[in-house]
């Protein structure tokens, strides 16, 4: 079974860091592989990735918003801007699966077609496979693999209401794309249902009045509110169709990264992302019971953010063993 033989983890990690596209593709396949042997191999692969990229390198961005807001076309436009700035870009595009068949149509490549044949752009689609609140469980480990080879890694998710913001907990910077003339997102923000993203952009400014109105409402709603770290989210408008406002959007995303770096929070943010992933994953598998077995959420977060770097898979397996009753 040569075709399904598992790769040698250290060699694969080396090749991914050396930006070998085939190796990255194989690594993503490996991180998607649920067989126990593959999982071990994946854990070893992630351990073998160079630490500096994982802790302080690149920029991991989440982009989310309601269906039809134009996330993919904005992403396509952002890719162009980043490529002009000499940055290499990887995308993880999460599409919903069919609840009936478990099959999925992965359509984001189509909507991002702007990337054409550029070898410095890498797009992997993922079906959310009905789990993890719209964000596929593989997203975090795959993001780490992509960060080893690309300057910007962007995770695109679709969702409605509060779930769409799950992505914000597992990225450095979250961008929320608001649909002009739809008050939903504003209501969610006001009611505190939705966490505040780091950047809010109203797409389709080309349609005029409605977009301007939504932008001004968003600005009013945000006021001078900041997130838990003290960052004040800017609200912008852009048009993927006209290509306007995209440079400013890229700047706004980068200024959040700079802000994290200047305050020495960048590495902590990455550790927090992993902790969020671990806790969410545990909750999916064991519910509140599992979290309580580990001392409750607050204790667990404190433990995880202080712990030395582990690969998410190895860290998860350790926690899992602590929850499961021992014979």
């Amino acid at each position: 079974m040569t075709r399904t033989a598992l790769p040698e983890p250290a060699a694969l990690a080396f090749a991914v860091s050396a930006r070998d596209r085939l190796a990255l593709a194989q690594a993503l396949n490996l991180l998607d592989d649920r067989r126990p042997a593959a999982r071990q191999c994946a854990a070893a692969f992630l351990e073998a990735l160079p630490a500096e990229k994982q802790e302080g390198g690149g920029h991991l961005i989440g982009i989310t918003g309601p269906p039809g807001a134009g996330k993919s076309s904005l992403t396509a436009a952002l890719i162009q801007v980043w490529r002009r700035r000499g940055l290499k870009v990887a995308i993880l595009a999460v599409d919903p699966s069919s609840p009936i068949s478990g099959g999925a149509l992965l359509g984001d490549r189509l909507r991002m077609h702007a990337s054409g044949a550029d070898r410095e752009v890498f797009i992997r689609s993922l079906a959310c496979r009905g789990e993890f609140g719209g964000l596929s469980a593989e997203v975090w480990p795959m993001s780490l693999a992509m960060l080893a080879a690309f300057d910007v890694v962007l995770v695109e998710t679709v969702g409605v209401g509060q779930k769409e913001i799950d992505v914000s907990k597992m990225t450095d910077t979250t961008c929320f794309v608001a649909q002009p003339a739809s008050g939903d997102s504003i209501q969610f923000l006001k009611a505190g249902i939705m966490e505040i993203p780091h950047v809010i952009v109203v797409n389709k400014e080309d349609i005029g009045m409605a977009a301007r109105k939504t932008l001004s409402e968003l600005k009013t709603t945000l006021g001078r509110r900041t997130d838990a770290d003290g960052w004040q989210a800017p609200a912008l408008s852009a048009s993927a169709a006209l290509g306007s406002g995209i440079e400013a959007l890229a700047d706004a995303l980068d200024s959040h990264r700079q802000w994290l770096l200047e305050r020495g929070q960048f590495a902590a943010r990455r550790r927090r992302c992993q902790a969020e992933w671990l806790v969410k994953h545990l909750r999916e598998e064991f519910g509140r019971y599992g979290i309580n077995r580990l001392g409750g959420e607050a204790v667990l977060f404190a433990e995880l953010t202080d712990a030395p770097r582990r690969s998410p898979i190895a860290a998860y397996d350790d926690l899992r063993i602590r929850i499961l009753p021992q014979d």
């Binding site: 699966s97 069919s98 009936i100 068949s101 478990g102 099959g103 999925a104 149509l105 992965l106 359509g107 490549r109 189509l110 077609h113 689609s125 079906a127």
Partner: peptide, 16 residues
């Protein structure tokens, strides 16, 4: 083929 593939459980990448 794309629609049928999804309906029998494949994940389909189709870019038009």
């Amino acid at each position: 083929i794309a629609v049928k593939g999804r309906d029998v459980g494949f994940e389909i990448v189709y870019e038009g």
